[in-house]
Design a protein around this nucleic acid. Structure first.
Lengths: 155, 155
DNA sequence: ATTGAATAGTTCAAAAATCGAAGTATTTTG
DNA sequence: CAAAATACTTCGATTTTTGAACTATTCAAT
């Protein structure tokens, strides 16, 4: 019934099983995103999905556990594709907001729908399992971001 | 109580929430593995964990959703570190088995223990949630591998 | 058996992603 | 107001991943 025996996954601790599942899904999603028509990389897709509203680049960097220069590169690609523009944050004119263009919003809507489908196919979970998984994933994400960058202690 | 509102995660579909959680955890684990004393990359750590018993390189490649040459490189690094050796598979002398050395087993045991701790800290889940998450992750992984490479249709 | 096609893994050069240090502009602190 | 800190960019360097050509072995078909 369950084919865990073939993969040898069943002998490992829950934590390791969880990690392996996460890796498998990540890699699968990476592969799938790359093969979507958009011509965007996974990082670009992810950034696009995050931009439901204008966000500061620094916030996005913290959110994606990466350095600012990576966000610069990703934003450049999306700007070149015509999906977003940079605007000074009126609250703090050092910062830039990434703002989706109309075209960017259209691309994002498409992508969000596509990504939902993609997760469904990749994971093979039904609706109830998905919502259960989402609940835990949300909790994990909050924990990761909380412990992510201890407020200025980048060192 | 729950700080989903700050991260704006709550408005998205469960599928997207799940994906974002997976990304966050992946990135966090990547970062954490890199900072473990071993001096191994995440890919190297992961391969090491998989080698509870000798495995063929091709199987590992399929398992890690990557190409053979990446496994070659990763195995080279682990071999240089003295953690594994290559042995011809007697079943099929084209294939090579990656076999842990004694030192490799020791490193793996250490790593497995460490990784469990690491998942615990990174995810912030309690034991019950972890086992719940592991169950779903196992299911996801089986689905991913099933649909992974349709048996020789690499094109 | 012999030959041709397929498969397992390697090599190595190229492509892609990521980083980090130095630079510009703006804000905050004292 | 000056000095320090912060936000982002630039760009060259490092790291990771890839893919195509190659060697060795097996499999399939006659």
């Amino acid at each position: 019934m369950h084919d865990d025996t073939e993969t040898g996954l069943d002998r490992l601790s829950p934590e390791i099983q969880a990690m392996m599942g996460v890796y498998a899904l990540y890699w699968k999603l990476e592969e799938s995103f790359a093969s979507i028509e958009t011509g965007l990389s996974q990082q670009e897709c992810h950034l696009l999905v995050k931009l439901d509203q204008p966000k500061r680049m620094g916030v996005l960097a913290a959110d994606m556990l990466t350095v600012p220069s990576t966000i610069t590169a990703t934003a450049d690609a999306l700007a070149t594709a015509g999906y977003l523009t940079r605007e000074r944050d009126p609250q703090d004119r050092r910062a830039l907001l990434l703002v989706l263009t109309e075209q960017g919003h259209a691309a994002r809507d498409m992508l969000v729908a596509e990504a939902g489908e993609l997760f469904h196919r990749a994971s093979g979970l039904d609706a109830q399992e998905t919502s259960q998984f989402a609940r835990l994933a949300r909790k994990i994400r909050n924990n990761v971001l909380k412990s992510g960058i201890p407020e200025g202690l980048t060192k």
